[in-house]
Amino acid sequence: MSTVLKISELEVDFQINGVITNTPLRGINIEIKAGKTLGIVGETGCGKTLTATAIMGLLPSSAVQRGQIEFADHGVINKSEMAAIRGSEITMIFQNPQSAFNPIFTIGAQLTMVAQRRGISDIKAILVARLESVGLRDPRRVLESYPHELSGGMLQRAMIAMALLSTPTLLIADEPTTALDATIGDQVLTLIATLQKREGFAMLFISHDVTAVAKVSDEIAVIYAGRVVETGPAHDVMSSPQHPYTRGLLGAIPSAEKARGTLVTIPGNVPSVLTNIKGCAFAERCSARIDKCDQEPPIVEIGNRSVACWVVKS
């Protein structure tokens, strides 16, 4: 199976006049196979969205990026090469469908601009067909509507239609269900999974919602303070988490089964991006911490899992 996206040692600094102000990404290593889904899980500020922004080549000019991004047959690509293929070979759907559409243009006008950019002919027919295929019953009305006239669920479907106007190689879904009600979000997830099966694109699925990520992903990467701390097949990561952070995160999910007041908690807070981190970023909150943890942790391979931790043993 061929690899669609391979990111090695991606690091991002923000600099002002050459002085590094913070380093929100400190080592992202991920790989997505053709037609498969990689889920990135992490809490606020851990660098999930920034990773997506870097892949799309949309980092602001104050950001300095190191490491490699390899994409499909293009090999290693830089920011300007990415600009040429984004929106066609890589497309993206976003967290808040209400703000992702321009409020003063109709959905039809916005989809048409994207369709033109992709060189699609017979735009109207393709748009109608596409909107139908994402489960919008009345595509003509949707095309003539302004964003504020449609519900969040409908807009997210329209966004998916826009992303899939022509089948991309990779779809990046950045918290696509977070702004939606749970049941609507689930419909959207099911739709994305169905379309993926039918059209065969690879997907990078980013969310703080562990349940949603587990549901759609083949592989999961858990990210903490700008670094991937654990990767592996979705089912394995969910059923036997290895990194202390992953364990803590899964233990923190409340449910009727867990006795009240006994949720696993991780003391403290996610370090701010301004914190200067040495060694393992999770060490100060980690109950398994040992002396070595103030040095950069090694990547330990456990079966089909990679874990960045001094404590776990292969």
């Binding site: 703080h208 562990v210 803590g248 923190a252 409340p254 007041g261 949720l263 908690t265 807070n269």
Partner: peptide, 13 residues
């Protein structure tokens, strides 16, 4: 966030 939510839920109980 999930990990902070757990702290608050435990505290509330």
């Amino acid at each position: 966030d999930l990990s902070v939510q757990a702290q608050i839920l435990n505290l509330l109980e």
